[in-house]
Amino acid sequence: MRHTRVKGEPRFPDGPKADPAGSHFERRIRSFQPRRSRVTAGQADALQRLWPKWGLDIDGQRVIDLAELFGNSRPVVLEIGFGMGEATSEMAAADPDTNILAVDVHTPGQGNLLALADRAGLTNIRVGNGDAIILLREMLAPDSLDGLRVYFPDPWPKKRHHKRRLIQPDFLTLAASRLKPGALVHCATDWEPYAEQMLEVFTAHPGFENTQSGGGYAPRPDFRPLTRFEGQGLDKGHVVNDLLFRRVPHRDQPTAEG
């Protein structure tokens, strides 16, 4: 018999919470736009079955032990915004010795990534639900990450919305405090004005250095798959720019503000 959900009942009782951080933290300027779309039966099944094992609600209430979260002490890369998860699962399969903590707020994408990981027998993916800023600021220890990936973030193209873009000096300061020296930060965007801003703020930040000896953008590395979305953009003549910066050894740095 099909269960009819009553008003106020969680959509996925054993799955991700609708607003895990609740009112615990002030409402900062959001760099992401929650998207509502239909969850398929397969995605719903993955959320119900796999979230208790592989999911993480970002509530900001504790510092997480990454070795405990993954069940091993392998390097951990944080990926912010993974869409439907195809590229994430492909990268996880190609590099099983690296753990990926993939964060998004899109419920169908969360379910799809869990299903992909389950189907491929991947154990090196954990899916975070909520605000990546709260995760970095409240739930990750200093020097705990071996890498950071931000692929095709919302470009917020209107000038009045530029303050909502994720890649800003304050964000880089926060990220630098959680990245180990030598950690690689990889960003990609098909919005050229945003790519120019990214390059400017990374180049100016004392916590990072460009891996390209002459500065500028990097060729797309082999480990970043060409996504369907990206392929469609390239077919339309869009230019995709990759940025590869490395966390420099510790020296006097600005402190990340809470």
Results as ranks from 00 to 15, higher is better:
residue 114 L to G: 11
residue 130 G to D: 11
residue 122 L to K: 07
residue 102 A to Q: 03
residue 107 T to S: 12
residue 155 P to G: 08
residue 87 A to F: 07
residue 79 E to R: 03
residue 132 A to C: 13
residue 156 W to G: 12
residue 79 E to V: 03
residue 141 A to V: 04
residue 144 S to V: 06
residue 170 D to S: 15
residue 116 L to W: 00
residue 170 D to G: 10
residue 136 L to Q: 11
residue 130 G to N: 11
residue 109 G to I: 09
residue 69 L to N: 08
residue 70 F to E: 07
residue 79 E to D: 05
residue 176 A to Q: 07
residue 162 H to Q: 15
residue 86 E to D: 14
residue 130 G to H: 12
residue 167 I to Y: 04
residue 166 L to G: 03
residue 152 F to P: 03
residue 146 D to T: 09
residue 186 H to R: 08
residue 79 E to G: 00
residue 81 G to C: 05
residue 76 V to L: 02
residue 140 L to H: 11
residue 187 C to F: 07
residue 161 H to F: 04
residue 178 R to E: 06
residue 188 A to E: 12
residue 66 L to G: 12
residue 88 T to E: 01
residue 140 L to E: 12
residue 168 Q to H: 14
residue 164 R to N: 13
residue 174 L to T: 03
residue 154 D to I: 14
residue 70 F to V: 06
residue 161 H to I: 02
residue 99 N to H: 05
residue 171 F to Q: 02
residue 72 N to V: 01
residue 158 K to R: 12
residue 183 A to D: 05
residue 150 V to T: 09
residue 175 A to N: 02
residue 141 A to Q: 15
residue 82 F to V: 15
residue 65 D to I: 02
residue 69 L to Q: 10
residue 131 D to M: 14
residue 177 S to E: 00
residue 169 P to V: 11
residue 71 G to H: 01
residue 70 F to R: 05
residue 111 G to F: 11
residue 90 E to H: 10
residue 100 I to K: 06
residue 154 D to S: 14
residue 71 G to W: 00
residue 131 D to I: 13
residue 157 P to T: 10
residue 132 A to W: 04
residue 98 T to C: 08
residue 86 E to Y: 09
residue 107 T to R: 15
residue 173 T to P: 06
residue 81 G to H: 06
residue 182 G to I: 01
residue 108 P to N: 01
residue 78 L to D: 10
residue 105 V to R: 04
residue 126 R to W: 12
residue 136 L to C: 12
residue 168 Q to F: 10
residue 65 D to N: 15
residue 132 A to I: 11
residue 160 R to M: 00
residue 139 M to N: 08
residue 146 D to I: 07
residue 170 D to I: 10
residue 142 P to D: 05
residue 137 R to I: 02
residue 97 D to W: 09
residue 127 V to M: 06
residue 144 S to R: 02
residue 68 E to P: 00
residue 155 P to D: 05
residue 124 N to E: 00
residue 180 K to I: 04
residue 156 W to R: 09
residue 187 C to K: 00
residue 98 T to Y: 04
residue 179 L to D: 06
residue 157 P to V: 09
residue 147 G to V: 05
residue 73 S to W: 12
residue 154 D to Q: 13
residue 133 I to H: 14
residue 114 L to S: 11
residue 86 E to L: 03
residue 106 H to W: 13
residue 103 V to A: 08
residue 118 D to T: 00
residue 67 A to L: 04
residue 168 Q to R: 15
residue 150 V to F: 05
residue 112 N to C: 15
residue 122 L to M: 09
residue 122 L to R: 07
residue 172 L to H: 01
residue 159 K to F: 01
residue 99 N to D: 05
residue 187 C to Q: 03
residue 160 R to A: 11
residue 170 D to F: 10
residue 80 I to D: 03
residue 154 D to G: 09
residue 72 N to Y: 06
residue 68 E to H: 12
